[in-house]
Design a protein around this nucleic acid. Structure first.
Lengths: 303, 303
DNA sequence: TCTTTATATAAGTTTTTGTTATTATGAGCA
DNA sequence: TGCTCATAATAACAAAAACTTATATAAAGA
């Protein structure tokens, strides 16, 4: 009886494709290059054809390999699910959690909560990544990222995803000291030239719904779109005009500036809901719960 | 570094649960009982808890095992998908195809086409099973059965399933010789006492839509519901009345009886579509195609 | 209590997987 | 074309793993 495909063979093959050469793949796997060669050869024998073209550099998956790759990866992902489910049964929290957040949340939330989380759960290894909403959701669906911390509304399809609401925060106007009254209507808002985030930021799209796009994008021939709220605020400081920031960013300001440089917006639209998003099949429920609790500590820093 | 869960461990565990004892499971796996014991112990060590209660007979999955079982089985099913996909790439057709049909198709279709199929593809191992529609669909969803040959309409949800139409056949009246004219309207049909298949047969439900239920079920204090069309026809032969049979069953009759003992029904409702049903994720596309071609040979037996 | 029946353990063998040393191959370039 | 460098394949051997038979141990029924 010819033996069957094993997990290691598939793992090695994935590593080989990722590394691009036998030698470096073997190195990352902490085995010798011949050992890797043998397992790949065995896998190829079982598959009944070549899987990598050794001639090209980096080594390339053959057409056969490309057809089988989804199934090969599926096997590995399901093994990982199994092991996640096992870890989820243990009382001691441990494991790996790959977290990603959108750029308008990352700089405010993560530095605050991560130290506490790492402290509370020393055996959870957390990987952090910053991605725009669209790419983040794709990464979750491809199981490259476990959980995303992001903001509703989301235009992307939510199939296969679970949404866990964290809290809602208001959007506010950031302006020169005393330049606006303490609360603006949407109509009043539309009169101001507004600095926008670069395309792909979900907050940009939301802000565009609040402001007059004609006024927003350009001012005095300048068309500056930044990827960070900090930059936009510095722009306002030097050039005047306004930008829209969420509470998270406002909380970073000094007590005085929070009142003199920001104003409320009197509209239900001027808020966003912070949520956790993860694939429905994700098994790390206890890690997720730990993250949720840690995240909520942002609201009550002294608890 | 502690080693990881392997495929064989999970395979052995599945076999253990299926067999109910270490000794018999080891026997079906063609290994010794201590070998099985060792692998299960290793798996339990990796999982961090007992998986089977050895005291009870048959051995029972612990609560922990029950929680993990879906993930364990998922791993095995995805390995099988991988291997199916591999077999699907080879030019020579081989593999395992688990076919199931409903009872009103099985006795007419399979004996006709199976010999041809087995002849044409000697390396395809076919397992046949007979199941009512509901259970058949569940078996397909659980991946216990690869493909079902059944009849539309289906009331069950078709989520995750693909439907491949084969052909449409008419339903006809079976009666005593010369007892009816050659074609009956639905109204004429409702006047006859009709023998019905037992509950759970999809043809029964369809027939109930054609006949008068009040007349159908009971006659002369008799309430006979059979699981086979053959029995119903013998009942008609001895007791009079009618029953509804599909073309498949009619084709089994002698040329003479096909005209003297059966009548057409002048209604668009008096037909059913024969289809192949399989899970969307099924990889054995070429085996499926072979089955489809073989099945269609039922229509043109001399081809 | 004594069988009976089943799983666990022990000791030794085979198979598999891995290592190091060496050879073969193929791409890039004079 | 032939040389050189980088990289993978092969050979020979070592370590680890998985399996075997024989035996011990535990639980259930007579």
């Amino acid at each position: 009886m010819s033996s069957a495909i094993t997990r290691v063979q598939v793992q090695y093959f994935e590593a080989l494709l990722k590394a691009g050469s036998f030698a470096t793949a073997a190195h990352t796997l902490h085995i010798s290059q011949p050992a890797l060669t043998m397992q790949i050869q065995r896998l190829e024998a079982l598959v009944g054809g070549a899987l990598v073209n050794r001639a090209s550099r980096p080594v390339q998956a053959t057409p056969l390999a490309q057809k089988l790759l989804p199934h090969l990866l599926e096997v590995l992902r399901r093994f990982e699910d199994l092991e996640d489910a096992i870890a989820d049964q243990q009382e001691h929290l441990k494991g790996h959690l790959h977290i990603a957040t959108i750029p308008t949340i990352a700089p405010y939330l993560l530095p605050t909560i991560l130290p506490k989380l790492v402290d509370a759960h020393p055996d959870i290894q957390m990987d952090i990544e910053e991605l725009p909403t669209e790419q983040l959701l794709e990464a979750i669906l491809q199981e490259r990222v476990d959980v995303g911390i992001m903001a509703l509304p989301i235009s992307h399809s939510l199939q296969h995803l679970d949404i866990l609401p964290l809290w809602t925060e208001r959007l506010r106007v950031y302006h020169l000291e005393g330049a606006c009254q303490s609360a603006l209507t949407l109509d009043a808002l539309k009169k101001w030239p507004t600095y926008l985030l670069a395309q792909g930021h979900c907050l940009r799209d939301q802000v565009l719904g609040l402001c007059d796009p004609a006024v927003s994008a350009q001012r005095q021939g300048m068309h500056y779109q930044s990827g960070s709220l900090e930059t936009l605020m510095r722009l306002v400081d030097h050039q005047g005009g306004i930008t829209i920031i969420p509470d998270m960013a406002r909380n970073q300001l000094s007590q005085v500036h929070q009142t003199t440089k920001t104003s409320a917006i009197t509209s239900e639209l001027a808020q966003r809901q912070i949520v956790m998003v993860y694939k429905q099949t994700l098994q790390k429920k206890r890690l997720l719960e730990a993250l949720r609790l840690g995240t909520l500590s942002y609201l009550s820093p002294h608890a």
